[in-house]
Computed example of a mutant assay.
Amino acid sequence: MTTTCPTPIRERAQKSLPVPALVVMACTGFIVIMTETLPAGLLPQLAAGLDISEGGAGQLVSAYAIGTVLAAIPAITLTRGTRRKPLLLVGLLGFLVANTVTAVSPSFAVVLAARFVGGAFSGLLWGMLAGYARRIAAPEHAGRALAIAMTGTPVALAIGTPLGSWLGSVVGWRWSFAAMSLLSVIVMIFAKFLVPDAPGQSAQTHAPLTRVLRLPGVATILAVVFIWMLAHNLLYTYIAPYLHQMHLALRPDIALLVFGVAALGGIWITGVFIDRVLRMLTLASVAMFIVAGAFLAAAQQSTVLALLGIVLWGLAFGGSATQLQTAMGKAAGENADAANAMLTTFFNLAIFAGGAAGAVVVNGVGAPILPAAMIALALMALVTVGFGRRAAFPAGS
């Protein structure tokens, strides 16, 4: 594949946003997140269908995350020069295969392997989607384009995963994964006709990963990614024991629905302001995590306080990926795809760390302490963003 397009992408970029193409990218993100989180809502059905324990079924989530962590950086490094549209179609094809194998296989080992492959294609797509979305929009709308392309994540968390879990409980878990395969085919068709192509990175601008890591601001942004997402995943992963041990009259599925809807509001706010005040927007989002943690820490037997905390938490989280990927794109320049692959890796490492550390906390001192940990980590992230005023989150951006 060549690294050039018939017409330079910037010449084709219009003042108005390429909304249909960005919606297709949002649907791609929806597929990625749905595929990742679906087993969490289907553990009893998966355990019964594959003749394993629920703990064993939970490893289907871990296998996906491991695939993402191991594949993101190598996949993006190997495909830097590849044109973006064929790469997008290959990534969607990977999800079609992984979900289809999951839907039809009677063997836990084969399903586990399919989940690992799905995670690997997740690393590929997350590593290239952010740069692709920014590349097909006019420069002055790049941040807003990324915000639209990232809406698939909160929609999947708020609506997709609960819907997939309900479908699996009604007609069987295999049909949930079959539905994801069908959705992959539909999105591939729309991507073929609605998404413009874009060139890969010119070979002359390829920098070794060690040099990309040393670019001003990149290491700082990665530190913020890990600390901030660890603050999020500590509580998000263990929201059910938190609600139970705080004696709150709030079901986990309702809490996650409120969180997801609030996250949609957060990504809308981010889309409005990100091209003008990236630094202030990021500082405000991290600070809101601290306020949300305070409400959640004080919510003992108070459903109202808990809901306020969850709403603020969702608003703060909704635009976080867009803010961090935009900052990374600005800091890394031509090497944004490689840098975003690092971002994806650190994001998934935070998911791992949140699950492991949260288990220790929940089984030790108890889930009610999780909001305090969330506050402490968010404070660290806020300070790190503050010190990144020169390159990572520059003043005036």
Rank of each mutant, 00 (worst) to 15 (best):
T3Q: 13
T4E: 15
C5P: 01
P8I: 15
E11S: 15
R12K: 14
K15W: 08
S16P: 04
V19Q: 10
L22T: 06
L22S: 14
V23C: 04
V23Y: 06
M25C: 09
M25N: 10
C27N: 11
C27T: 02
F30Q: 02
I33Y: 06
E36K: 00
E36V: 03
A40T: 10
Q45G: 03
L46C: 13
L50V: 06
Q59I: 03
A65K: 15
A65T: 12
L70Y: 02
L70G: 03
P74I: 01
T77D: 03
T79Q: 09
K85V: 11
V90D: 04
G91C: 08
L93F: 08
L93C: 13
G94Q: 07
F95E: 07
A98D: 14
A98Y: 03
N99V: 07
A103R: 12
V104K: 10
P106C: 08
F108Q: 06
V111M: 13
A114N: 05
A114D: 05
F121K: 00
L124Q: 01
L125I: 14
L125Q: 00
W126F: 11
M128E: 08
A130Q: 02
I136S: 03
A137N: 11
R144T: 12
M150V: 07
G152K: 12
G152E: 00
T153Y: 14
V155M: 05
A156P: 09
L157K: 00
A158C: 09
A158S: 10
G164E: 04
V171I: 13
W175N: 09
F177T: 04
A179S: 07
M180E: 01
M180R: 01
L183G: 00
M188C: 02
I189E: 03
K192L: 14
K192F: 15
F193N: 07
L194V: 12
L194G: 04
P208V: 01
L209Y: 01
L209G: 12
R211H: 13
V212M: 02
R214C: 01
V218S: 13
V218C: 13
V218A: 12
T220V: 02
V225S: 03
H232C: 12
N233Y: 10
L235E: 06
I239S: 05
P241Q: 10
H247M: 03
L248S: 05
I254N: 05
A255Y: 05
L256T: 09
V258G: 09
V258P: 04
G266L: 04
F273N: 05
D275I: 11
A284F: 09
S285V: 08
V291Y: 01
V291T: 04
A299V: 04
T303G: 04
G309S: 02
I310M: 10
V311H: 07
L315A: 06
A316R: 00
G318D: 07
A321R: 01
M328D: 11
A332V: 12
T344V: 14
F347L: 07
L349V: 13
I351C: 13
F352D: 05
G355S: 14
A357T: 06
G358K: 02
V361S: 08
A367V: 02
P368Q: 00
L370Q: 01
M380C: 15
V383I: 13
V385I: 14
A392Y: 07
F393C: 01
F393W: 03
F393I: 10
